[in-house]
Computed example of a mutant assay.
Amino acid sequence: MRSTLGAQLSALRRRRAMSQRDLAERAGVSVDLVRKLEQGQRHATRIASLTALARALDVTPADLLGKPRGLPAGPANGEVGSIRRAVLGIRPAEVAPPAVTALRPRVAEVWRLYWAGRYGELACELPERIGEARAAASESGAPGAALLAELMQVTAALLAHLAHEDLAHLALTEGMRAAEASGDELLHASQQATRSWVLSRQGLWSEAEHIAVSTAESIEPALSRASTDQVAVWGELLRYATTAVARSGRQSEAQELLGLVQAAAARMRGDHYSRYVGMAFGPTVAAMKAVDVAIAADRPRHAIRLAERVERPAALPTAMHARYLLNVAWAQMSDWRSQDAVDTLRTVEALAAEMLPHQTIARTIIAELLPRRRKQRLPGLVGLAERMGIAA
């Protein structure tokens, strides 16, 4: 049976009336790669190649991998439909404006659900919270606008995970307007960091890089006297810029940006929480990013060695820890440490079972590992694939 990637690649290519050679030339990859993917002789490829193929077919990488949209439970994307109506705001809900002091802990709880990977609960909470925040922004001005900006930011982040990236950008548009109304420069910059991340998920590397780099330049702090929040937001923007540059294949530039991320992390003198980032920023995050850059450079063995130096990944929020472990699993899969990759995926499932099906990297790893069962037993893989909704 052809992999989901191979089947999608073939169907989308034929839909656009392209030959395998046409697609290969347009994507800048070898025709042999296209042929092997479509024939099921290969089930995964480098992230840069996957992105190039998706762009040549005018789809997102998630579309190419057959990633499902929305939440797996609930009535036909009902939760996403409610979020869509809230984001569009065509018929604003009649909500009595809550006091900012009452709304602030509700916004904090929304962020907690996001970083815990509890997408179902978060999706149910957001529509009501968005209505409250809009009312608070109208009533109380800048303090309410700041909370509205945060809510639209977390809404955008969730929508991107659920493969509704364009709706995520709409949420961020309102979030950035609200951040400007709040008068908080760092809040606006953190919105731009999320915008860069969403663009990266769509494979729009140059656009993601531009947003992250230009915003980082506009808020660049003097490290010797900058606050924790200033350094954290600047470092996060550089981290997203590093992702975009590494994924676009410019490895020397990615290393230069990684050096700046590491400099910002060193200035933190440990992992310190920033409300603008929503988690701790510091050496642990920088060390995780080094693993990601090595993977983008197709150096899985080096990535595994770097992963051994990440000292406290479990100290970060569950969602961040889980996403990092998926990078480790990718490196293990690429280095033919197949059982290690399976075991790492099962660790991710134990940490954040609800968020795992929404991770395209997880689906790609499983698709690559399944055919290896012809030569390796790989206990635990089939059950994991079934729970992910992937045909074994």
Rank of each mutant, 00 (worst) to 15 (best):
T4D: 08
A11S: 11
R13E: 05
R15I: 03
R16Y: 07
S19H: 01
L23C: 03
L23M: 01
E25M: 05
A27W: 07
L33S: 01
H43W: 05
T45E: 08
I47R: 08
A48K: 00
A52I: 05
V59Y: 10
T60S: 15
P61I: 04
A62C: 09
L71T: 06
L71S: 06
P75V: 11
G89F: 10
G89V: 09
A99C: 05
V100P: 13
P105H: 09
R106Q: 10
E109D: 15
W111C: 02
L113K: 01
G117S: 07
Y119T: 08
E128R: 15
E132Y: 13
A137P: 07
G141V: 09
A142W: 11
A149T: 05
T155Q: 12
A156Y: 11
H161L: 09
H164A: 14
L167F: 12
A168V: 04
E180M: 12
E180I: 12
L186S: 09
H188P: 04
A193E: 02
E207L: 05
T215W: 09
A216I: 06
I219R: 08
S227W: 06
S227C: 06
W234G: 01
A244E: 00
A244G: 00
A244N: 00
Q255G: 03
G259D: 00
A266M: 10
S274F: 11
G278K: 12
F281V: 06
V285A: 15
A287H: 14
A287E: 01
M288C: 10
M288L: 09
D292A: 03
D292W: 02
I295R: 01
A297N: 02
R299M: 00
P300I: 02
H302I: 09
R312F: 11
L316Y: 10
M320K: 14
H321C: 05
Y324E: 02
N327M: 04
V342P: 01
L345D: 08
E349F: 12
E349W: 15
L351F: 13
L351T: 14
E354L: 12
H358A: 15
I365C: 12
E368D: 13
Q376N: 13
G383M: 08
R387E: 03
R387D: 06
